[in-house]
Amino acid sequence: MRQDQRLEIDRISKRYGSVVALREMTFDVRAGELFGFVGSNGAGKTTAMRIALGVLSADSGEVRWAGGPITLENRRHIGYMPEERGLYPKMKVAEQLIYLARLHGMSRSEAQRSARAWMERLGVAERREDEVQKLSLGNQQRVQLAAALVHNPEILVLDEPFSGLDPVAVDVMSAVLKEKCARGTPVVFSSHQLDLVERLCDRVGIVRSGQMVACGTVAELSSGGNTRLVVDAPLAPRGWADRIAGVSTVGYEDGKSVLELGPGADDQLVLTAAMETPPVREFARRQPSLTELFRNVVTENGASEGRAA
Rank of each mutant, 00 (worst) to 15 (best):
G225T: 04
V250Y: 11
T299Y: 14
T47M: 06
D10R: 15
M212E: 09
R238E: 12
D28W: 13
S57T: 14
G123T: 02
G39L: 09
V157R: 00
H192A: 05
P69V: 14
R199Q: 11
V19S: 14
P263C: 06
S18K: 15
F283C: 03
L7P: 06
E300L: 13
G36A: 07
V280N: 09
D28C: 07
S209R: 14
E260R: 08
T227Q: 14
A308F: 07
A308W: 09
P153C: 08
T71A: 13
V157G: 00
R11A: 09
S60A: 15
D195T: 08
T26G: 00
P69A: 15
R50H: 08
N301W: 14
V170T: 02
F294I: 03
A146V: 05
A265V: 02
E33S: 04
E129R: 14
C201H: 04
D195I: 10
L34C: 02
G264H: 04
A31N: 07
I78V: 12
K90V: 12
A125H: 05
D267I: 03
L235N: 11
I78M: 13
F189E: 01
G164T: 01
Q141C: 10
G184Y: 06
V29Q: 03
G255T: 02
S60T: 07
Y252P: 04
L145D: 00
V218L: 09
A148C: 11
G42R: 01
P153E: 02
K256C: 15
L269P: 01
P288R: 00
E84I: 13
N41T: 05
T47Y: 04
S209K: 15
I98D: 00
S248N: 12
V298P: 04
A273I: 00
G216V: 00
Q211Y: 10
V298A: 04
R281M: 10
T227F: 13
L87W: 01
S222V: 09
S109Q: 13
G225S: 09
L97H: 00
R281P: 05
P234E: 07
D202N: 06
G105Q: 04
S109P: 03
D59W: 10
A94E: 12
L53D: 02
N74H: 08
V218T: 04
F37M: 09
L165F: 02
G262F: 08
V38I: 11
G246A: 06
T299F: 13
G36C: 05
V187A: 02
S163D: 10
F37W: 14
P82D: 03
V55E: 13
A265E: 07
V63F: 06
T272M: 15
S107N: 07
G302L: 11
M1K: 07
C215F: 12
L100G: 01
R102V: 09
N139A: 11
Q268R: 15
R102F: 12
M275L: 14
R238K: 12
A182C: 08
R30H: 08
S107M: 12
S222T: 09
L271D: 10
L156V: 03
A236N: 06
R295K: 14
V197E: 01
V172L: 13
L53K: 02
T26E: 11
